[in-house]
């Protein structure tokens, strides 16, 4: 079973995403702040991560950068979530190594198909 790590300080978002992903057969791990997220990522080495940008302590960019510059973790695909007002973040997200960038409020089907696609690519 594929392991997915969800990191977002908004619990409701984590909750809903977890429900959907688990009902689709993935195993989910959750963290509600950047610090825990990073710790958990290094501990479990997930198959994929869904990261929020705006978080207290360590934000999504930093986590992404730290992981992508580390040979041990750089192959973990990262989906970056953020609010629409921070459009220029998209570029930064790409720079920090996030594989896909999704704007909140997102389309559930869009998230699911992206997860599927990224995991398939990784297999290959």
């Amino acid at each position: 079973m594929k392991k997915i790590l969800l990191v977002d300080d908004e619990q409701d978002i984590v909750e809903t995403l977890k429900f959907v992903l688990e009902s689709d057969g993935y195993t989910c791990f959750c963290a509600y702040n950047g610090e825990d997220g990073l710790k958990l990522a290094k501990e479990i080495i997930p198959d994929l991560m869904i990261l929020d940008i705006m978080m207290p302590k360590i934000n999504g960019f930093k986590i992404s950068r730290l992981l992508k510059y580390d040979a041990k973790y750089k192959n973990i695909p990262i989906i970056m979530l953020t609010a629409r007002s921070q459009e220029s973040d998209k570029q930064i997200g790409e720079e920090t190594g996030a594989d896909v960038y999704i704007t909140k409020p997102f389309d559930l089907d869009n998230v699911l198909s992206t997860v599927k696609q990224l995991l398939n690519e990784k297999e290959e």
């Binding site: 409701d12 909750e15 809903t16 007002s85 909140k104 409020p105 559930l108």
Partner: peptide, 9 residues
């Protein structure tokens, strides 16, 4: 906007 995301999901 924050509450819209979980609401919609």
């Amino acid at each position: 906007r924050t509450p819209i995301t979980p609401l919609k999901t």
